[in-house]
């Protein structure tokens, strides 16, 4: 088990290093001169020179890369070019929206998707199964940002139950903040819940066909008992991987959904950074998001150990 964890940790670090290199290359090396890119074509030479110094462009790329990495390790993410404030402060403000949004969506996804999948598999070929499968088939096909627009139209424009967008901030009370994130997280979660339900169903059906389910039934366990005590936990193993991937999708999807609802989160920050060509902000936010995704996948692999004794090898 220790060696499994060590292996996973090593692969986590390698992924992070490679990811940072890729982001660095794409942002700082590929566009040619990042300062020129950020300021546009008709920039003043002295502004350009100032920015070049700020970015450290006089240094070789390798030095710049390590400066960036060591800075981040110390919590120094650089100064945003457009906001003139440390990126760490910008991120700290926005993460209070993006992280709850991703977590809320993930919770909704799991709470809706897993039971739907289990019910469909337990009642295979029934009307319930057909209804769940039909709904999920549709759910997978719906683009989340379109779903978000429809939710705004119905619940904000027509029914006036929710604000059409914006975020009141957590200091106005938990409930208001939660209400502000509810529609966006539903828009994010439902299509993902549809995917999860299908994966859960199919994994559970595979498991229900296993020999050990027959052994359990031969012991005298009724179908439902065999399902809950033997099939579900086994079926969750492949599902865990999907949940990990979905978190990554929810984070990235959140970036787009934040735009639909005008939420002041990391996604808005990214797009503002992109339109204003603020590469310092963009690379940091993207690196943070990638870190979150890689870290969550690491957690999923730890969860495997808890679920699956075959990974808990003794020395």
């Amino acid at each position: 088990m220790a060696s499994y964890l060590a292996g996973r940790l090593a692969s986590l670090l390698i992924s992070l290093v490679v990811a940072s290199i890729v982001i660095f290359l794409v942002i700082e090396v590929v566009p040619g001169d990042p300062a020129q890119f950020m300021l546009g074509l008709n920039a003043q030479p002295d502004t350009l020179a100032a920015l070049r110094t700020q970015l450290g462009l006089d240094e070789p790329a390798l030095i710049r890369y390590f400066t960036w990495i060591f800075g981040m390790l110390h919590g120094d993410f650089g100064i945003s070019y457009t906001y003139r404030t440390p990126v760490s402060e910008l991120v700290a403000q926005r993460i209070g929206v993006s992280a709850p949004l991703a977590l809320l969506s993930l919770a909704l996804t799991v709470i809706i998707g897993l039971p739907a999948g289990i019910i469909a598999a337990a009642r295979r070929n029934s009307a319930t199964d057909a209804a769940v499968m039909g709904a999920t088939q549709l759910g997978i096909a719906v683009p989340n940002f379109w779903f978000a627009i429809m939710l705004v139209w119905i619940f904000a424009v027509i029914l006036h139950w929710f604000p059409a967008g914006g975020f009141p901030g957590w200091n106005k009370g938990i409930w208001l903040g939660f209400k502000g994130l509810l529609l966006p997280s539903i828009a994010l979660a439902l299509p993902q819940a549809a995917i999860l339900a299908r994966v859960m169903r199919s994994s559970l059906l595979d498991t229900l066909g296993e020999d050990y389910i027959r052994t359990a039934r031969a012991k005298g366990l009724p179908r439902a008992q065999a399902l809950w005590k033997h099939a579900v936990r086994n079926a969750l193993i492949p599902v865990l991987t999907i949940v990990g991937l979905q978190f990554s999708f929810l984070l990235a999807g959140g970036i787009i959904i934040e735009n639909v609802f005008y939420l002041p989160g990391l996604g808005r920050l990214t797009f503002q950074g992109i339109t204003q060509r603020d590469l310092i902000t963009v690379k940091t936010v993207i690196m943070l998001l990638v870190f979150a995704v890689i870290f969550v996948n690491f957690l999923v692999e730890i969860a495997y150990v808890l679920v699956d004794p075959r990974l808990r090898r003794r020395a």
Binding site: Y212, T215, H230, R233, D308
Partner: peptide, 15 residues
Amino acid sequence: GMVFQEPMTALNPLK
């Protein structure tokens, strides 16, 4: 009671 042919898959790997 019943005993089956394939012992490798007849037991739940997680219990």
